[in-house]
Design a protein around this nucleic acid. Sequence first.
DNA 1: CCGGATCCGAATCGATACTG
DNA 2: CAGTATCGATTCGGATCCGG
Lengths: 230, 230
Amino acid sequence: MAGRSYGQYCGVSTALELVGERWALLIVRDLLVGPRRYTDLKQGLPRIPTNILATRLKELQAGGVVRRVPLAHCGLVYELTAYGRELEPIVQALGRWGFRSMGDPEEGDVVTGDSLTMALRTAFRPEVAAVLPPTTYQMHVGPVVLRARVAGADLHVAQLTPAAPPVSGPVPGDAPDLEFAAGPGIRRVISGELTPSVAIGDVVRVISGDPTLLERFALTFHIDPEGTST
Amino acid sequence: MAGRSYGQYCGVSTALELVGERWALLIVRDLLVGPRRYTDLKQGLPRIPTNILATRLKELQAGGVVRRVPLAHCGLVYELTAYGRELEPIVQALGRWGFRSMGDPEEGDVVTGDSLTMALRTAFRPEVAAVLPPTTYQMHVGPVVLRARVAGADLHVAQLTPAAPPVSGPVPGDAPDLEFAAGPGIRRVISGELTPSVAIGDVVRVISGDPTLLERFALTFHIDPEGTST
DNA sequence: CCGGATCCGAATCGATACTG
DNA sequence: CAGTATCGATTCGGATCCGG
């Protein structure tokens, strides 16, 4: 194993030995949304080989980043330790930094519920949201359906995607103020390259609610492609 | 190349495709200190295979992170683009996060001038330094010699290590207020596990100047091992 | 010396299949 | 559901070599 070490006594190289291997930070990204079972992770990372996932989870446990928690009645989940959760600002900063290098999606690229949830949390501007009225957005991106409830400086994202609708009553929470389906171009709305009004009908299709609320959405969720916001 | 893609349309995976490969962020770390020539990078990353270094530099250029700059009279240097420099807070955050997992150095681990320079910049607390008198520290860690000049909220680190001493006059700048040699245990001073007075004679050997200035050093450069500071 | 390119064995990764 | 096992395709690591 000495061959895998960077051979430096340094915080950065130590960090990279813990979470710098291929796929590791994407596993962390998904676990930042919540505890996940092995199968959930595999589904959220469609291209990860199963043996790599198993190996990474063992390494992350050995590094004190992830914990394996047997569930009461069925199966088990992986969850981040407190130490692992401290990676959230780093993962978000990486997401912000990588944001402006995302071109258009490659053939076969997917958007997952967890990645979109983290993207929303990354783009969320609490100080802007705080001065806007509480709003619930429901968005469809490909097969993913998310509900983002913004109230004051707080954001709560729920994934409705693979959930079988409960027999009685609609989805949890109140009805969304705005429901829309977005293509990949939603990225340009988040970055401000595209104004919401232009986006409507092009990359955004409003399903229900007041279309002008898309403006509020763009104010609430924003990533400046120039690094001005750090 | 499609086999190397994470297959996700997401800022984090995009970032990891740019700087997530092995060694890439350590190259960035060294370039954050300043432009470096190929040979400098190779020396600062003693364990990197030369073909990997060449490959990474090409990939980082293709990603717009690094630029290749021919020098006027001799050779050329690599330097970060503006986009690459935006990785500084991320590299620092990784260094802070990894800091508390650094055990004692493994056999063969090295400390380089660039890694120590970044470590100092990472541990530097401008708001604390601002209320302390200007101070110049000169530290020896293994073969590395660094001079850190703290003035108000500003820090300037110079590497004296491999520099042939100029024929006339001493090293640049004024004489250090405190000069000391530190072992790996200096880490415990930075983290506050060890008080400066205890450290003296154990992990720190004062060469010249007032030994009580080590206290000021520990106040100026500090990384809280608990994630309280984020 | 600087800035790599080349070659080769060892380790890892990726894809698929299989099991308790 | 939660992984192992297997195996070819890549990549990594170490060393050497080469043109300026």
